[in-house]
Amino acid sequence: MPVTKEITKIASASLPFEEQWAIRRCRYASGLAGGRLCIAAGTHGDEMMGQLICFQVADRIQREPESLRGTVDIYPMLNPLGLDIMERMVPAGIRLDMNLAFPGNPQGTPLEILCHAVMQDMLGADLVLDVHASTHYKSELYEVRMNEADADRLIPKARTLCPDLIWVYPEYAAYGSSLTSALCAAGTDALILEADERRRKPQEIAAGVVSGIFCKMRELGLWTGETQQAPAPEAIPVVRTKAEVCRVTCCNPGVYVPEDRIGTEVRKGDLLGTVVDACEGVVRERVTAPASGLVFSQRSYSAVYPGTLIARIRKEPV
């Protein structure tokens, strides 16, 4: 049975000038028994990595359609207006963070109505993956993130996505309004994938994530083609508590010049980067690792203030 490909507007609202603010879904359906995987991206308009990941997943499905079982739904642009202008928030006069508007409200604002429609469309899937790409000037390893409340259930499921790290967020009020939290609260498993596009060769970063997605699809019975071997559970580091993360910030304003530490194990005292002052021609600060461990977030070359996040280190287990 051939794989069908169908692009549908799952929700829309009219904009003032002859345009629809629409959220599109591309469905690849095998017609064969199997589950459903949803892959969403672009909640934040300044995060482009999800586009490449969605493209690479779609490309492989189209090249190997005989391997697909069940259905894969791809929602590459949840915040299309923001993506168009590279703006994190939803523009359209309101400038709100879409990932703080779930589960939405069918009688609410346009944003709430669209969020509700997205939720309704995804509910009942075997798994939803929401792809993000960190924030400006910060590189991340390929991470799978989840809320503390769902961690016991989701950590085993996250391993076959083959991430570099699994990070359990501590409970924080705002996360309750995210797409993944709202879906989990409604009974549908959902995970955040974090992968940045700020390093060279974003296609290689995306390929690593996509490889993990197909490994997961195989485990879910959605894919019969070749995939990478899922690593042993103990091979993927897991951050479960705040105490396991060393959050490194700088103390001085200036221009931050990073060392290339992302994905490496550092020792306490190793140099992470330097804050320089170009006006006076002096080094303001040498930022060093306060603890030994794996650097999984790294600030890139940019302006900094006191408190700017320089790096996150997963501390070596004692």
Binding site: T135, Y305, G307, T308
Partner: peptide, 22 residues
């Protein structure tokens, strides 16, 4: 602007946190 964050979404704040939280 430097962090594109809303101060009114960062209370009670964090003396060791991001600039906005500080």
């Amino acid at each position: 602007a430097p962090e594109n964050m809303d101060i009114n979404r960062c209370f009670p704040g964090d003396a060791a946190g991001s600039t906005t939280e500080r």
